[in-house]
Write a protein that binds this DNA or RNA. Structure first.
Lengths: 209, 209
DNA sequence: ATCTGTGAAATGATTCACAGCC
DNA sequence: GGCTGTGAATCATTTCACAGAT
């Protein structure tokens, strides 16, 4: 219940459980043990049980967890039982790819507006909607009940864009720009940075060939 | 030196240091303290010093770290002092976006081949090269000295594709498919999954509106 | 017999705090 | 005065191991 004392690492793992449970649902599994879930996700059963125990007692001793029930509970805990609306900032190649990526939509994250600081992009049609100028951010965020901003601008502009988003009432930021952006403590930011992933990977590969 | 006992969290942070140092270089900074680096990256100076101490003594007491020198050392530690070649598997929308993403190339990661299991994609031109059938994987990996595989296929096919990559001598995998893939212990895998990021974000946002 | 939920123990990561050097 | 490098202390996370439920 008291989300303040749930370790962040635990929260980061909950979506993995949601995904595994969704898969089990689609396979018509009715019950799953922490053991099975663990081997599906390559984690120890103890960790799964401990993680879940932060939020309640969802299992039955001797049996395991009801798949549908646990999935529902976790979705509610994560706030996934509703639609989330996001705006995209930056409609270059990356931004366009993000808009067209069907994965967000499938999981109830809807991109409902697109902005760009570049005048030459403004007014262009991208998918279903027009690219808007940043000056319309405030109004659109309010009108369309947007809570999440997706940042797909060049590194140099990212911090400014993020500042603008925060000033205009955006609460969560998914940042694709390769920068360690600064945000106020009450804002949640997540960075997507494949180059960083590769650069830590090569540490382990460097002695090959 | 002995990379086995460097904690993985530390390795994951090194690329952040590399990036910050690159930026400092471009601003012609010559020296930087753990303090300054920390405020740039929002980390404690102690953590930075401790992280670096796993690999050597790079700083000068009373002064700090020479930017160029530290950058070079870290790049060498991470194996970034050479080019890494990767192949892409899956040339759908996501795959095409990945090929066109200039960020990899800028940091010396080169995508040098593209594959797709779908016959109708094979032979199409994507950027500079032809889409190849999976049957040519083995030969191409060998000929072009590819060590990294980038997976951009639908979730359902991902594990199979990853298995094929591993069987064909790929040592590192950057996986964009939303699955918890299984790989042998000697293979390094990194997952890029923006939906997971959003789903853990909403935990903190769920009580808004 | 099987599996959860959970305190306690063990392990791991971060931060402190200071000696030593510039 | 300022800063690094690092043991020691603190704090966080994972794993163990078992009582209790089915």
């Amino acid at each position: 219940m008291d989300s303040v004392e749930v370790p962040e690492v635990v929260v980061l793992r909950l979506p993995l459980y949601v995904r595994a449970l969704s898969q089990l649902m689609s396979e018509s599994a009715e019950v799953v043990s922490s053991q099975q879930l663990g081997s599906l996700l390559q984690m120890t059963p103890a960790q799964i049980r401990k993680d879940l125990s932060y939020f309640g007692r969802f299992g039955k001793q001797g049996r395991g967890y009801n798949v549908r029930f646990l999935l529902n509970e976790l979705q509610e805990i994560l706030g996934l039982d509703r639609e989330w609306r996001a705006c995209l900032v930056g409609v270059g190649r990356l931004g366009r790819a993000i808009i067209n990526y069907p994965g967000f939509h499938r999981d109830n994250f809807r991109i409902v507006a697109a902005f760009d600081g570049d005048q030459s992009q403004v007014g262009n049609k991208i998918g279903a909607f027009d690219v808007q100028p940043m000056s319309e951010l405030s109004e659109t965020v309010c009108d369309k009940k947007i809570t999440i901003g997706i940042v797909a601008v060049p590194a140099q502009q990212a911090q400014n864009v993020i500042n603008e988003l925060v000033e205009n009432n955006i609460k969560g930021i998914l940042n694709y720009a390769p920068v360690a952006a600064n945000v106020p403590m009450n804002i949640v930011i997540r960075n997507i940075d494949p180059v960083l992933s590769l650069q830590s990977m090569t540490f382990y590969l460097r002695h090959l060939t």
